[in-house]
Nucleic acid binder design. Structure first.
Lengths: 198, 198, 198, 198
DNA sequence: ACCTGCGGGACGCCCCGTTAGT
DNA sequence: ACTAACGGGGCGTCCCGCAGGT
């Protein structure tokens, strides 16, 4: 029956995700994953031809998850370009989506820099998000509520802020209430973008 | 004479830095480093007790470099809190300082998340910079040229922006003129911080 | 219906034979065979209890083929002991029979040296042929056309010559026209065996 | 000191030779060799980059041994082309030289058929011997003691006989007194080559 | 009866970071 | 400063049972 197979595969993936996130890709051996998942190496290599392959599979899943979440979040912002705060709120979504998987994110970047296929998988969605933000901004400009800045640059700026906060939240979790900091930061930036209405 | 010894050590370090940056920490073997540096493994272990140790040594050097560069840059901003643009310019310095060593930076973060000693070495300077920016902001607030925001949060925001730009510049170098983008981004943020003089 | 089954079995065997011959027994995995034959591993193990077993099955078939061919060839020689050249011609048959399967032959010997069952299967026919040649020689001696040598030794000598040529032809195919060399060689030997009629 | 190193290397080689000969190349794992030799895997790979490499090293040594032995043996035959029996005796040398290493010889051929480098190492000496025998024969022809046959073919025939006997002696050791059989066989052939002095 | 997918472990080769002995 | 040796894994693969479907 195929149910069993699917379960095994899922188990392996979830374990692998967690271990990659906790110990990193290189430090996690296939044997580790198998032991933790309670399967044999035979089972592992039945489902994934290579250690790299499970990483890519994980990555794919993770990106599509993120995609869904962000798309949903931006629905609201999309329709209310004047309420820039909603954009600020959206960034919280980005952080949430990455919650507890930051190390995996790092690993992913590191791998991306070395393996073209991974890079491909990484760069596309990144540009996608940047574009989404740029679109929102552009609409705001057209509507006359945002300064006439370069929308692309603004998009990149928003992404940069989100990424930077993500990173800080990761390597200094106790340093601040990152949740609130995210909102505040984004507000500061938004304030710089909105048209001064006297 | 110790000259020879010093040279060997330096050679090893420079090779190691480059290889870590290009291939990553785990993917770079001690043997690789030795071959490239033209020394024996014995020589390597004569100078560094452990592979980790050379990494830390490298890290220390790198951080102190960065420190010096940033301190110099912030001298100006420090004394001219009203010219917030100078702060924007300073972020360019951060990018410059990391030029071509981003992968090493990533490795460093990854390692930091796992080894307390590394984390220690990483978190301290990070907080240092954040504090510097916060100070500049605070002075601006006191002088009445900046909105009465929370200075710490503003500091974190600036650092976040810098980090985020660094990251983007790294994994999508062709995506934009990051140099200029950095300045523009910072200006947008600054605009949100400054007091509306109207 | 069993037709399907028989076909599958035959397909597996033919693929296995070719792969063993080309890559050797150890270097050919069951998975390789299955992939090439277009069947699942389950199917393989349904037909053959073990990898060794398919080898033995193949071997058995191969030997009985060889047997048939040689027996046919020696019919002639048997009845014309004075025409020693026909014996020479027979050796060509040996070479022909092994055409393109030398590596399998080698594998077979190697396996034989380690597994008694295989050895059993190998040594019997070998002695059979040697005996056939010895018989022909003995008849020649009785008929007075061949020197009074030890017939067994002569038989072994003929077999040796055939084997040696086979081997050379295998690992240095371009080295000579082995076809003709075989005949010439055998003639030289025959000349040493025949009674000097002068 | 380098003495230790040399000893370790020699120990590894001798153990490997024996195990390859007894169990075959594929069936002998590096771990087996190490255990038997009482060294660590690290030591093994310090001396030999690859499992294949130790095989080649062994092969090289074996061939040069054989070379030396045969050269010495053919010295006599060389100078006494009329005493063809000495050539017959020489073949005994070939058998002696291979004593107890036949399986290694087989392995070697099997490997040769798959790895060009091995084949290279194998084919050269083989042609060398064939040539030596051919030379002896040619001299005999020139001296008028041997039939005007094609010397090359005769050389190949002698080699074939030697190989064939070697093989039979290996897979049916009890079948005959191969020592004496070798001499008898060679005499039969020689008889066919020599000029009928009548 | 025939065939399939899945799973199980045991190893195989290679390499890695490191310590002893000069 | 350097060569030799050391173990301990790492990844990938192999040969092979079962449970299940057709």
């Amino acid at each position: 029956m195929q149910k069993r197979s699917e379960e095994t595969r899922a188990k392996i993936m979830s374990v692998a995700l967690e271990m990659f996130a906790r110990q990193g890709y290189d430090a996690t051996s296939v044997a580790d994953i198998c032991r933790e998942a309670g399967v044999s190496k035979g089972a592992f290599y039945h489902h994934f031809p290579t250690k790299q392959d499970i990483f890519l599979a994980l990555l794919r899943g993770w990106l599509s998850d993120l995609d869904a979440q962000l798309d949903a979040l931006l629905q609201g912002a999309d329709s209310v370009p004047k309420g820039l705060v909603s954009v600020a709120g959206a960034t919280r979504g980005v952080l949430k989506a990455a919650e507890g998987r930051q190390l995996f994110l790092m690993e992913f970047w590191v791998q991306a820099s070395r393996h073209p296929e991974v890079w491909e998988a990484a760069i596309a969605p990144y540009r996608h998000y940047q574009q989404m933000f740029a679109n929102v901004i552009q609409r705001g400009i057209d509507a006359g509520v945002i300064q006439p800045v370069d929308a692309d640059t603004a998009g990149r700026t928003i992404v940069a802020l989100a990424l930077g906060l993500l990173l800080q939240a990761w390597f200094d979790p106790e340093g601040a209430a990152w949740d609130k900091t995210a909102v505040q930061s984004m507000l500061m930036l938004m304030r710089g973008l909105e048209k001064k209405t006297l």
